[in-house]
Structures are given as C-alpha cells and as structure tokens.
C-alpha cells in the first residue's frame, strides 16, 4: 500500500516535472524568438547591437 502510494506520488511528480520543463522550454524559445529573430523594425533597431554581438543573423 505504502509502496503503491509512493509510486503514484513519484509518477505525479515526474509528470509535473516534465510539464514544467516543457513549459519552460517553450517560454525560453519564445523569448529568444522575439528578442533575437523577429524582424519588426522597432524591435530590430532596439535589439540590433545585441543580435550582432550574440551571433544571431540580423539583417
């Protein structure tokens, strides 16, 4: 019984870790896309020097 409860808790924890990790990966990718890659001119001008210095394709 105890073992079963622990296993269930372990699975729940693993599920929440995977969910949290995937959410974090998506948020990170979205931030990198907006700051590093979107070509809208205001965003491009503001981030210009950083895009060059970080090695993103810029122009």
């Amino acid at each position: 019984m105890t073992t079963q409860t622990q296993t269930a808790q372990g699975q729940a924890a693993r599920g929440s870790a995977a969910g949290a990790a995937i959410a974090a990966l998506l948020i990170g990718a979205a931030i990198i896309f907006v700051t590093g890659h979107v070509q809208a001119s205001t965003l491009h001008d503001a981030a210009h020097d950083v895009r060059h210095a970080t090695g993103f394709p810029c122009h």
Binding site: A20, A24, L25, G28, I32, T35
Partner: peptide, 8 residues
Amino acid sequence: GYAFIMVG
C-alpha cells in the same frame, strides 16, 4: 530566455 531553456 536561455535560462528558461537551461533550467527546464
């Protein structure tokens, strides 16, 4: 952004 990817 990179930190989110890494900590994830």
